[in-house]
């Protein structure tokens, strides 16, 4: 881990919100990810695609230090957010997570009312102002408002799986984080809600930056400006994920450079 790197070109750094550099990453003795460098530009959507177990979630969770919660997690490399090293010893991971929000693969609403779920982050940030308005705004943007406006004060767990996921999205965007990380946010959603979430991503990227993991290649093509393809390297006996290529989405899908990418996007893997 490098401490503070002198910002190379100021102009570039201006637009560079996140600079992910994973050289080697372990979970305990398991060598999980290597050589994954992804710069993320402000106001864009970046997608990670690749087969299951290749380390997409792992890479994503490095961006807001969620992996700190895993015993035995360590890595060589660095992650910069607005040209600050977020793994620097003086940086508080809690603060990092307030600016970089996250939506998880599994819906995980709290065992409380819909309203309190959405207001949770606002409370944490000691927001003073109109909670009702904020909550409604977040729920509308997450395409959930019409379905829950009459049951704001009943349990969030009483919603369907897809509604719960949209509730989690509303909860994450209520505090307007600078960056939103989404780990397969639509895997539990029907096509209509999925479309609505994709529109939300497009809408949000005008002010924020989004990094999304998806198994849905059409989704990546619809929403992502940049796409990173990750793959599993089994040649050294282990199962280590790595970034094969990271390029503008249209280019990557039209003209993949690597053979693995070409086969994956054509669905030639089982």
């Amino acid at each position: 881990m490098t401490a503070t790197e002198p910002t190379s070109a100021a102009a570039v750094a201006e637009d560079l919100v996140i600079d992910l550099k994973l050289d080697k990453l372990w979970y305990g003795k398991f060598f999980a990810v290597r050589d994954t460098h992804v710069p993320v530009t402000r106001g864009t959507v970046t997608a990670f695609i690749g087969p299951s177990g290749c380390g997409k979630s792992t890479a994503l969770r490095c961006l807001n230090r969620m992996n700190d919660l895993v015993d035995g997690f360590r890595f060589d490399g660095s992650v910069h957010f607005q040209s600050r090293d977020i793994y620097h010893p003086t940086i508080d991971p809690v603060a990092v997570r307030r600016y970089i929000g996250m939506v998880f693969q599994q819906p995980n609403p709290f065992a409380t009312t819909v309203f309190k779920n959405v207001a949770f982050g606002l409370r944490l940030n000691r927001f003073r102002g109109d909670y009702e308005e904020r909550v409604e705004h977040a729920l509308r943007r997450a395409a959930l408002w019409d379905e829950v406006k009459d049951k704001l004060h009943s349990s969030g767990l009483a919603l369907s799986g897809g509604q719960q996921q949209r509730l989690c999205i509303a909860r994450a965007i209520a505090t307007e984080p600078e960056v939103l990380l989404m780990d397969e946010p639509c895997s539990a959603l029907d096509p209509i809600a999925t479309r609505r979430i994709e529109e939300l991503m497009t809408e949000l990227k005008e002010r924020y930056t989004i990094v999304v993991v998806t198994h849905n290649l059409q989704q990546a093509q619809r929403v992502a400006d940049m796409t990173g393809f990750m793959y599993v390297d089994t040649t050294q006996g282990g199962r280590t994920g790595y970034l094969v290529e990271h390029r503008p989405t249209a280019e990557l899908f039209a003209d993949p450079r690597a053979e693995e990418t070409r086969q994956y996007i054509r669905g030639e893997f089982s």
């Binding site: 969620m66 809690v94 307030r98 996250m102 995980n108 065992a111 949770f120 989690c168």
Partner: peptide
């Protein structure tokens, strides 16, 4: 565990997670 992750993901400290999520649950 996923509930605790949700709280941490929103930027809760350990105490905020315990008092705001773990104990109420």
């Amino acid at each position: 565990r996923k509930l605790r992750e949700a709280a941490f993901g929103l930027g809760a400290t350990r105490w905020e997670c315990i008092l705001g999520v773990v104990l109420p649950t």
